[in-house]
Each structure stands twice: as structure tokens, then as C-alpha cells.
């Protein structure tokens, strides 16, 4: 039973993390190849602040705030560079984060931080907490997508220049997307820190950034149910089948590659086409 609870908790954290990137990349169209860094900022902030005595879950708020500050800075760069250039710039921020953490003794350097205090909840209680956060973030995402903010984000993702012509303050919208998305990534990181209770730079590298991006893309960029589904499945698959664990990366990458070749709009796009097809035939 204990193993299933651990797995389910990991799945909930993945959902929160994937939805946070979906907000930036899916809703607002700003590609990020360094999103694991914000997850990392959240994890380190939660670890250090709870070690310093800040009570759970207040340290999650600190994690969100710290990640959002970094998100704001990276968001500023999205005002200067776009598309492919932004992809490379965000990748650069990811490596910069790792490089700094590795050299800082107060962040544990290569060794990371261990013996992070637990949440004080039972394993089951913590799962309940993580699930509640995941549901809340999913509902918030679904609301946001249909609000005027989501409407404006979609316009910016579609065509920034036209968005300006209809009076949108594109810069502020992008910054808000980065701040909201990275704050949620920070919460996911904080949840992760209390979950595994040991963190090191290796958990926040480029591969993790790609893994979360693949959840968003396999789920279907911008589709909330699609991304939730992909995050659940892609997290569970390798942990369920130990055989796959060894081939986890190969599986991930093959899936991603095939998805791009066959249907680049992911599960969300598939579902949309299926339902529209049915509507047309009836």
C-alpha cells in the first residue's frame, strides 16, 4: 500500500507541474525549455525555509513566491526574444540555475539537501493534500482558460502583433503568464521536496524540463484534461513497470517523436477531433 501512495503522490505533483508549464506554453504560447529550474527553485526554497523553521504549508507559499520572482526575470527575457530564441534562452536559464546551485555550499552543492522535514501529515494525508492542490490547480487552469485572461493569452499565442492592434498590453500579459506559471511550478517543487525529503541538482536538469514539456505536448498544448491525463500516465508508466524504468527515456522520447510525426496537437487534439467528428456525423 505504501508504494501505491508514494506513486499516487508523485502523480499529483506531476499534474501540478505540468499544468504550470501548460499555463505558460499552452495558454500563452511562450515555449520554455528550462521549466525544471522553477520546480527546483520551489523545492530548494521549501527545503531551506522548512529547515529554518517555517511551518508546512506556509513554506509552499514561500516556494511559490521565490519561483515567481525568478519567473518574472525569465519572463522579462521573453519580451526581448521570441520563438526559437526564447526556447534557447529558457534552456540557458535552466543550465544557469544548475550551475549556480552546484557551486553554492549553502545550497548543498552537488550533494544537495537531505533530511528535509516532512509535512507532519501521514502518508495518506499528504497524498490527500497533494491531490487537493492538483485538483485546485486543474480547476484554476480550466477557469483561467475560459476567462478573459485566457482569451487574451490565446490571442497572444496566436499572433503577438495583432494582439497589440486590439489594445492588449502584450508585455504585461506575458509577464503575468510567467509569474503565475512559475509560482505554481514552485508549489509543485515544494510538494516534491516534502515528498522525497532529499533534493539535489540532478533532479532539476534539462531532461526534467523536457519530461514536463513532453507531458504538455503529449497532452495537447493548452488542453487541461489532456495535460492532466498525460501527466498521470507518463508519471505512472515507468514507476509501475520496473522494466520500463530502464527504458524510461527511450519510451518518453519515442512517444514524443511519434506524437510529433502523427498528431502534433496531442491527446487534447485527438479528443477534439473525435468529438467534432461525432457531432458532424450525427
Amino acid at each position: 500500500m505504501g508504494y501505491e501512495i508514494t506513486l499516487a503522490t508523485s502523480m499529483c505533483i506531476s499534474v501540478v507541474f505540468a499544468l504550470s508549464l501548460n499555463l505558460i506554453t499552452g495558454f500563452c504560447g511562450q515555449i520554455s525549455l528550462g521549466h525544471a529550474a522553477f520546480f527546483g527553485v520551489g523545492a530548494y526554497t521549501a527545503a531551506l525555509s522548512s529547515k529554518a523553521g517555517l511551518a508546512f504549508p506556509l513554506d509552499l507559499l514561500a516556494a511559490a513566491a521565490a519561483a515567481a520572482v525568478f519567473g518574472f526575470v525569465v519572463g522579462l527575457s521573453s519580451l526581448r526574444v521570441r520563438h526559437d530564441f526564447l526556447a534557447i534562452t529558457t534552456m540557458g536559464f535552466g543550465f544557469l540555475f544548475l550551475g549556480v546551485v552546484r557551486q553554492q555550499d549553502w545550497l548543498g552543492g552537488e550533494m544537495g539537501i537531505s533530511a528535509i522535514p516532512g509535512s507532519g501529515l501521514s502518508k495518506l494525508g499528504y497524498l490527500g493534500f497533494a491531490a487537493a492542490v492538483a485538483v485546485a490547480v486543474a480547476l484554476f487552469s480550466a477557469y483561467l482558460k475560459r476567462s478573459w485572461l485566457g482569451f487574451s493569452f490565446a490571442a497572444i499565442a496566436d499572433d503577438e502583433d495583432t494582439a497589440r492592434v486590439v489594445a492588449l498590453d502584450v508585455a504585461r500579459y506575458k509577464l503575468l503568464a510567467f509569474v503565475l506559471g512559475t509560482a505554481i511550478a514552485g508549489i509543485a517543487g515544494g510538494l516534491y521536496a516534502h515528498h522525497v525529503r532529499f533534493i539535489s541538482p540532478d533532479s532539476f536538469g534539462f531532461v526534467e524540463s523536457i519530461a514536463v514539456l513532453s507531458m504538455v505536448i503529449v497532452g495537447g498544448i493548452g488542453s487541461v484534461p489532456g495535460v492532466v491525463f498525460a501527466a498521470l500516465v507518463l508519471t505512472a508508466l515507468p514507476l509501475w513497470f520496473q522494466v520500463i524504468e530502464d527504458y524510461k527515456l527511450l519510451l518518453y522520447s519515442a512517444l514524443l517523436f511519434i506524437m510529433m510525426q502523427l498528431c502534433e496537437d496531442g491527446i487534447g487534439g485527438l479528443m477534439r477531433r473525435l468529438t467534432q467528428g461525432r457531432r458532424r456525423t450525427t
Binding site: Y143, W148, S152, L168, Y173
Partner: peptide, 24 residues
């Protein structure tokens, strides 16, 4: 929706306000 977005200028003038506006 192309036209509706423009017609919602009062909602979209500030992002935080857009977050709290829902009806279209």
C-alpha cells in the same frame, strides 16, 4: 471571437482584471 476579443477592451485593458472577468 476575433471581433469579440476587441469588443472586450474594458476587460482586457489590465491582465488582473481580465483574470476576474468571465462572461462573454
Amino acid at each position: 471571437d476575433n471581433v469579440a476579443l476587441a469588443a472586450g477592451q474594458h476587460h482586457t485593458a489590465r491582465p488582473m482584471r481580465a483574470l476576474f472577468s468571465f462572461r462573454r
